[in-house]
């Protein structure tokens, strides 16, 4: 009797596993299907519709919220994507872990439109794995009607006058990074005593912070809920469109300079089509529609020529070389990330 039950149970387990395999394997069709994985609210989706029509390729578009989300999705292997848009440090991590295909630049003729400034960057020094998509900085956005001190340093986020009017990013690397910058250290430090110092600073700041937020920061700042916030430049451009009282500054101590680039994960089964898609995105006309829609800065020389002079001159989107002189690009921290995580937990539960 017992034996019979066991046999039944094992049969059940086998059937269940088969079912799982079956369910994940379905969904094939003749037309090539390209799976694109991008940040939320980070592409004019009408571009995708046009691409589908022009090349007779079906595109499945999904989004993620952070680099780490994307990394975990790809790493766990459950999903195969053909094109993804990670940032600098994540690209180097993925290259190190052999997660990316090299891109055949002969298939991306539009690569010539990318400004030389954005080529040979440290995370992909031979331009083998990535095609720049958009770029920007991290800085402070403030409401001119609520802040009367000059905003030029991260120190203002520690000013008690603005208690409960400060919004910080709920992101470990960015929040710890700007504190390190304020203290005069590198954003990529692995020195524990420097990180400890940054931790103390952030704990000290906590009573002044209204909240640690994600995407809500846009609504909050536009609605005048807070005076100061740490944001990415592209979001700042969009916020200034909606509320002219807002201004964006890259603090003098320097900040984070970041690049999001298109890559082809190893799990991709349609490398050729993925390259077609990346090439399409780099077409000046298409890149213009995209940057005009989302507000982030384009690395495409031709596209820049099409933009409003006003936007080009606005240092929020296109800062001068002097402004980004002290800025750093994130590097992959590998194991030190665990220390960051612990520090961040300590700050948020203090």
């Amino acid at each position: 009797m017992k034996q019979k039950l066991n046999a039944k149970l094992s049969l059940l387990v086998i059937v269940s596993t088969l079912l799982v395999l079956l369910l994940t394997a379905c969904g094939q069709s003749d037309r090539v299907t390209l799976k694109v994985f991008n940040w939320g609210d980070y592409m004019d989706t009408s571009i995708i519709a046009d691409f589908e029509k022009e090349y007779n390729i079906k595109v499945i578009y999904s989004t993620f919220a952070t680099n780490e989300d994307m990394y975990v999705s790809l790493k766990s292997g459950g999903n195969s994507y053909d094109v993804a848009f990670p940032s600098d440090y994540m690209i180097s991590r993925m290259i190190n872990e052999d997660m990316l295909h090299t891109i055949d630049m002969n298939n991306i003729p539009n690569y010539k439109y990318i400004d030389d400034k954005f080529k040979n960057l440290p995370f992909d020094s031979n331009n083998e794995y990535s095609v720049p998509y958009l770029w920007g900085t991290l800085g402070i956005v403030y409401n001119k009607t609520m802040v009367d001190d000059p905003v030029d340093s991260w120190e203002i986020l520690w000013n008690e006058k603005y208690s409960k009017q400060i919004l910080m990013l709920d992101s470990q690397r960015d929040s710890i990074g700007i504190t390190l910058k304020m203290l005069g250290y590198s954003m990529n430090t692995k020195e524990e005593d420097q990180l400890e110092e940054a931790k103390q600073k952030l704990i000290e700041q906590k009573p002044l912070v209204l909240a640690y937020v994600g995407d809500e920061v846009k609504d909050k700042m536009v609605g005048g809920e807070a005076a100061l916030a740490v944001v990415w430049s592209g979001d700042a451009v969009a916020m200034k469109w909606e509320n002219p009282d807002l201004e964006y500054v890259i603090p003098k101590e320097g900040s984070n300079l970041w690049f999001d680039s298109a890559v082809i994960p190893k799990s991709s089964k349609h490398k050729k089509e993925a390259e077609m898609f990346i090439n399409y995105l780099s077409e000046p006309e298409v890149a213009f529609r995209n940057t005009d829609y989302i507000g982030y800065s384009t690395p495409n020389k031709e596209t820049m020529g099409m933009l409003d002079q006003e936007l080009i001159e606005d240092s929020t989107a296109y800062p001068s070389d002097a402004e980004i002189e002290n800025c750093e690009v994130f590097e992959d921290l590998s194991d030190t990330l665990q220390i960051y995580d612990r520090i961040w937990t300590e700050i948020k539960s203090s």
């Binding site: 952070t66 780490e68 912070v209 937020v213 809500e216 665990q338 937990t345 948020k348």
Partner: peptide, 23 residues
């Protein structure tokens, strides 16, 4: 959402391990 990320609860901690640090 309502605590503005200032009140890490055990649920937040678990979520963070899976989606952020990958631990």
């Amino acid at each position: 959402l309502l605590g503005g990320g200032q009140f890490t609860l055990i649920g937040n901690l678990i979520e963070q391990q899976f989606v952020y640090t990958g631990e």
